[in-house]
Design a protein around this nucleic acid. Structure first.
Lengths: 191, 191
DNA sequence: GGGGTAAGCTAATCTTATTAGCCAAGTGGC
DNA sequence: GCCACTTGGCTAATAAGATTAGCTTACCCC
């Protein structure tokens, strides 16, 4: 009976991600993953070290996908266009995968070089966009932080239904983009 | 041996909050609360309906405390001063209680009137501040959203160690405040 | 001072993660 | 073509935690 599922760490993470997307991050259990992959729960340990490790792998996968998305969105653009495209891609990724938020938002484990590297890679995108916008040095750092804070907060509030009122969310997003663009432009002129 | 701990729902929530503050939201288990209150785990059910209900009560408590904090901070102030004071209080609350983030950030359960009312009460504070800043109607709604997004995102990134670089975080916070203030002021002039 | 309720308790069940130890199927060298 | 090893699966067992059932005692009211 045994030896036939043909699992790999990859496929385990695939299944985990599918469960997260369908049912939320809290629904990610080894038992559930085992069901979905047609295997008994202990068998999963042949491929991943346990639930915390599986969560870590999911996090890395999500970070990589997200990085790819925002990187692609800014490719070949510069200045304000890049900035707007980045913010929109950021928002779109989380609208497409609302349950992945917990994996994107957790602080990287300082003892995990792989995770740190991935997090750094992600942050390098807005940083590069702002450099292309004419900002350098400290101003670029502060502007990147403001940019991330604004987009991050917006998408988070949107994803959790934090915007209860009927006013159009697209319009708010435009306001937010204008806010960030003006700030960044203002900073550039100071330099 | 029985009948002596003298628990109440209040005291159970007190213990829960203490555990959260000490060890994080994931550490909140009934077993842990029972230990801390000197009682066997099933006894807690005489006071709260179960773990989800306990989490809900903790959430309500945190929201009420937070509301109190930002309400006090804006009391007797108006315009830009109120706005800055609000943002600072927001940030300070989460710096003082970093583990409470998960309770503040979860979307209110749409079927829970008490939670909805509390959430609405909290949002009414920035809304009132912006009304006092001269904004009305849709503009006030959009500005409130931008304000919340920016502060929320900033505090979140700060709390999770999202700001890795050495640049001063206070300075970034000043930039962020300026960003919001300028936007709000600009919106007022458009009206 | 007796009945009722409130607030404990122990015992038992269920879910989930995790470990231990077994087994079969393929693989490589000869 | 066959043996030893590795790989990937399994079942059984353990442990933590939530939750339910049913018992018991302290206290309150009258």
């Amino acid at each position: 009976m045994p030896a036939k599922a043909g699992l790999t760490p990859q496929r385990v993470v695939d299944a985990a991600l599918a469960i997260v997307d369908e049912s939320g991050a809290e629904a990610l259990t080894l038992t559930r993953v085992a069901e979905r992959t047609g295997v008994a729960p202990p068998s999963l340990y042949k491929h991943v070290a346990g639930l915390p490790e599986l969560r870590r792998l999911v996090r890395l996968r999500v970070l990589a996908e997200f990085d790819e998305a925002i990187r692609t969105a800014t490719l070949g653009r510069a200045g304000e266009a890049a900035l707007r495209s980045l913010a929109t891609a950021y928002r779109n990724y989380l609208r497409a995968h609302p349950h992945r938020y917990p994996f994107l938002e957790v602080a990287p484990d300082p003892d995990d070089p792989e995770e740190l590297a991935m997090a750094e890679r992600v942050v390098s995108v807005p940083f590069a966009v702002l450099r292309g916008h004419g900002l350098t040095g400290s101003a670029a750092v502060h502007a990147t932080r403001c940019l991330r804070a604004a987009i991050y907060g917006f998408t988070r509030l949107e994803a959790t239904g934090g915007f209860g009122l009927p006013e159009d969310i697209e319009t708010t997003f435009e306001y937010l983009l204008d806010m960030v663009v003006h700030t960044v432009t203002g900073l550039r002129q100071q330099q």
